[in-house]
Structures are given as structure tokens and as C-alpha cells.
């Protein structure tokens, strides 16, 4: 009797809930293991590596020396200000342009929507190196931009766009805008599909014009999307490497060298000092984390 009662009491180990939970964890475990292996583990190693200094394999434990070096690095100030210039000019302009384009292309009455959407999105499917090389050619001294400016009489002699600091930065910003605006626009378009058309209808009945609709309806309802793209663009720009590397090679001088480029230079290109390169890489991480936090605080009302 006793045993029968006990048996009845013992629940099977794999209850429905447990089973579901375990299945969930099983699915998660592969991804988690991969993330830990490919993301967290290298990150921890990078912190460790930043404690060592020396050329090549002749590395010695140096404690916090590399972080002290950050303070006196003669090039760091310039590469940081270059990076922040790209960040502060390009990211807001790109987000605004992406929003405007998305709002325009969301118009159900617009003809040829598909073509426009594809055309604007297509640049981000183009290989980074390929488009950088095309931009290089376009802005070369004998490139199409100079030829056009000369033909229209705007310039008398070809302008060395990539050889002059400010115009080289401008070319990189134009390149970034061209490539990434369509990408961000897709997020906004997706966000716009979620907004009920009846809200706009009601606003129109109340007499709101297009700009008021954009400011009072579109922007607030797209807030999560804008936050997402802002954070993605910020971290992306902080790690900006390909465009300066391929378009200007960081030049003229170090006028377009970014902080990620600096890491590459210190760690690989010049006499390899992976310890100090790790320290600079950690600095990028800290900056990205701070900016991300600020954006979440400002942009997400739920916090």
C-alpha cells in the first residue's frame, strides 16, 4: 500500500514544463557556446593581452603600462577626433536621410516603389572593397567628379579630393552615406509597416500636414527602430576600418585614420605590438559601451 502510494506521488522527471525548458536550453546551448567561444573568450583574452607589452613574441607582463601609454600616444588624439567626426556628421545625417526616404517610399500611392527601394538598398549589398575602389576612381585627380566639375566650369584645375584632409574626410562620409542609408531605411520601412494607416487618416482629418504627421506620429512610433539603428551605426562607425583603408589609406597624413585603423597599424602593420593594440581596442569597447548606454537612456522611454 505504502509503496503504491509513494509511486503515485513521484512525478516523472521529465514533466511537460521541464521538457520544454530543457529543449529550449538545448537549442540555446549551441548558440551560447559559440558566442562564449567566439566573442566572450577572445574579449577576456584581449584584456589579458593588453597587460603585456613588447614587439612580436618578445612580450612581457607590463601591468597597466599600455593604458598609461594611451594617454601619451601622439596619434591617438587625431584618430579619435577623426572617428568622432565621422560619427557626429555621418550617423545623424544618415539616420535623417534614411527616415525621410523611408517615409517617402512608404506612400502606398507611389509608383515604382519596389524599384526605388531596391535601388536605395542595393549599395549595402555591394562589396566594401569594390565600392571603395569605385569611389577612389571617381574622386581621383583624373576621375569622373573632377571631369564633371571641369566641364561645367566650376573648377579650373582638377582638385585632389583624396589628397586634401577635409575633402578626403568628406569623400569617406559620402561613401558611408551612400552605402548605409539604404540599409537603415529598410529598418524604418519595416517599422512603418507596423504603424496603422488609420492613425495617419485620423491625423489628416484633424488637419495635420505632412510634416506634423512625420514629427508627431512617424518619429515617436519609430523610436525603437531609430534607437536600434543609432546604436548599430554608432558601434559600426567606431569600428570603421574598410573605407579609410581602401579609399585613402588613412591619408593624407593621418587625416582619415580611424581608431580601428590605428589598432591595425599598431598591431599588424608596423612593428607588431599586440599588447598596446589590445589596449586601444578596449578603449573602442569602452567608448561604444558608454555611447550605447547614453543612447538607450535617451532613446528608450521604458528605462
Amino acid at each position: 500500500m505504502q509503496t503504491a502510494k509513494q509511486e503515485a506521488k513521484i512525478k516523472p522527471f521529465f514533466t511537460m514544463t521541464r521538457k520544454r525548458g530543457l529543449t529550449g536550453w538545448l537549442f540555446l546551448s549551441v548558440a551560447s557556446a559559440l558566442i562564449i567561444l567566439t566573442s566572450f573568450y577572445p574579449f577576456v583574452r584581449a584584456i589579458e593581452m593588453a597587460m603585456y607589452s613588447g614587439a612580436g613574441t618578445r612580450m612581457q607582463f607590463a601591468g597597466l603600462v599600455n593604458f598609461q601609454r594611451l594617454l601619451i600616444d601622439p596619434h591617438l588624439k587625431q584618430v579619435l577626433s577623426n572617428t568622432f567626426l565621422f560619427l557626429l556628421v555621418q550617423v545623424p545625417m544618415m539616420i535623417l536621410l534614411g527616415l525621410i526616404l523611408a517615409a517617402m517610399l512608404n506612400d502606398p500611392k507611389l509608383k515604382g516603389k519596389g524599384i526605388f527601394r531596391t535601388a536605395i538598398f542595393l549599395p549595402c549589398a555591394v562589396g566594401l572593397v569594390a565600392y571603395s575602389l569605385v569611389f577612389r576612381q571617381m574622386f581621383a585627380v583624373d576621375g569622373i567628379v573632377n571631369t564633371a566639375l571641369l566641364t561645367f566650369g566650376i573648377l579650373d584645375t582638377p582638385y585632389n579630393f583624396l589628397g586634401t584632409a577635409w575633402s578626403a574626410r568628406m569623400v569617406i562620409i559620402i561613401g558611408l552615406m551612400w552605402r548605409w542609408t539604404g540599409y537603415n531605411m529598410m529598418f524604418y520601412l519595416a517599422g512603418l509597416q507596423q504603424i496603422e494607416p488609420s492613425i495617419y487618416e485620423a491625423a489628416r482629418i484633424d488637419g495635420a500636414n505632412v510634416i506634423q504627421q512625420f514629427r508627431k506620429i512617424t518619429l515617436p512610433l519609430l523610436r525603437p527602430m531609430i534607437l536600434l539603428t543609432a546604436i548599430m551605426s554608432t558601434t559600426g562607425t567606431l569600428q570603421l576600418f574598410d573605407e579609410p583603408f581602401n579609399l585613402t589609406n588613412g591619408g593624407p597624413g593621418i587625416a582619415t585614420r580611424t581608431i580601428a585603423f590605428h589598432v591595425f597599424n599598431v598591431g599588424f602593420q608596423q612593428s607588431p605590438n599586440l599588447g598596446y593594440a589590445s589596449a586601444v581596442a578596449l578603449l573602442i569597447f569602452v567608448i561604444a559601451a558608454i555611447l550605447g548606454l547614453i543612447q538607450i537612456k535617451v532613446g528608450d522611454k521604458r528605462w
Binding site: Y41, A46, Q239, A260, V263, G267, A277, A281
Partner: peptide, 13 residues
Amino acid sequence: MKKLLALILVLVL
């Protein structure tokens, strides 16, 4: 950062 991560990854592999 990307480069560094890539390198470390290669090392691990």
C-alpha cells in the same frame, strides 16, 4: 577590434 578578435579566434582554432 574586429581584426584583433579575428586574430584571437584564429589562434583559438
